[in-house]
Amino acid sequence: MIDIKHLHVNYRGKPALQDVTVHLGSGFTAIIGPSGAGKSTLMRSINGLVPITDGDVLLEGHSIGKPGSAALRAQQRHMGMVFQQFNLVRRLSALDNVLLGCLGRQPQLLGALGLAPKADRAFAMHLLDRVGLAEHAWKRADQLSGGQQQRVGIARALAQQPRVILADEPISALDPKSSEQVMHILRSIHEDDGLTVIANLHFLDTVRQYATRVVALKAGQLVFDTTPDALTRELTRELYDHDPPAVQGAEPPVSVNQLASA
């Protein structure tokens, strides 16, 4: 599905990813690692949102192309992206936000004017219904709760009819109940629709519950690639340099020394 080959990404002159090589096939892959490990950069470079310094990312054998290129846009249409902060267009309705996922299939001018074909509108409505938000279709995105916004974000990604869903910390900004709803939807996308799901996740219990594979990054490098069952305490201690966050809301306390050095 996705082949990442010797990927190097520099961010503001500093290496964010160094020589990452990994094949992400079908399944539910969780990317884990401490803050600043390069998880988001990896996700964003797969989608072409950050320029690659060296190496390559291939989706089904095709290189993702240069930023701004038609080749990249064609590849992006196969990858639905779910963002940590939802990134909905706040002044548009939930339905219009889902319709953004159909833009790649629409004529440029009609899409720009927001004149979506009837079939796309019906499809978007069906997706909103699937994430349990059909009755909120006409509400403006900024009137929805965080959990609802993230579900609209998932519907927008599904509207692309993608082969892969890339979820960049999809539950970091959500309360536990909303997080569970979002994770259930992501699992259903993987299990029922057969889509590849790649998600940056912060909490190891969530990883064990939903993922079928775990890829760990630390300081921009791939440190291990295993199954959730093989996530031992020793392995995760080594990854996080302390006991890792197991469940949401159970982050280790930050010491005064850490604050001083931040």
Binding site: N47, L49, R73, A74, Q75, Q76, R77, M79, G80, M81, F83, Q85, N87, L88, V89, R90, R91, L92, D96, L100, G101, L103, G104, Q106, Q108, L109, G111, A112, L113, G114, G153, R156, Q160
Partner: peptide
């Protein structure tokens, strides 16, 4: 972030302006 989300769908430049920036 809102513009980036529209770009990430593979939308073309005019669509990004119309649906990501204009609203």
């Amino acid at each position: 972030g809102q513009v980036e989300a529209v770009k990430a769908t593979g939308a073309r430049p005019l669509q990004v302006l119309g649906r990501g920036v204009w609203p």
